[in-house]
Design a protein around this nucleic acid. Structure first.
Length: 152
DNA sequence: GCCAACGTTGGC
DNA sequence: GCCAACGTTGGC
């Protein structure tokens, strides 16, 4: 079992939006970065733990616990000309972008960046590293356990 | 294959 | 709105 941190802008899909969806499950649309795509395609397994993270908002941080709910499959928005995620260069027979379904298990308090940064056990958390922009990052088991403890 | 220019992310 | 950091593009 692996663990991940997945960023979402709450103005697009918040943890509340995800909880309101059928089975509290949303397709993780819009990933347009090869490294993040490859994590979904090559490393994610159904059941992997996910930290649901809000970015580009007033209080960025972890806001929920989720799980990977599907294997990777083509992101339909890449073929939709009206979508901001449309990619004219991607072909249906050879999709460039994939997604997984993510199921929210519970909403938590907001565990914000200052609190994450202040924790000695979380110093190496990938998302805290300077300049990190990846929307999906792996989370070490010890970091996952520490964050769950902070949220308990 | 190099690398400058450009676009995007995302915290502040 | 600013800007640092990073990824992508495209000319050569």
């Amino acid at each position: 079992m692996n663990y991940w941190l997945m960023k979402s802008e709450p103005a697009e899909v918040s943890v509340d939006d995800a909880l309101a969806a059928p089975a509290a499950t949303v397709p993780w649309t819009g990933v347009r970065n090869y490294q993040a795509r490859n994590f979904m395609r090559d490393a994610m397994r159904v059941g992997d733990g996910v930290l649901f993270y809000h970015s580009s908002c007033a209080e960025p941080g972890v806001v929920g616990i989720a799980r990977v709910a599907s294997t990777a499959y083509p992101d339909p928005t890449q073929f939709d000309p009206s979508s901001p995620y449309h990619d004219a260069a991607s072909k249906r027979e050879e999709p460039r972008w994939l997604l997984v379904d993510v199921q929210v298990l519970r909403k938590t308090r907001t565990l914000g960046l200052p609190e994450l940064r202040a924790d000695p056990q979380l110093q190496d958390l990938v998302v805290l590293k300077k300049g990190n922009r990846l929307s999906i990052t792996p989370v070490e088991a010890r970091h996952w356990q520490r964050i769950l403890a902070l949220l308990a």
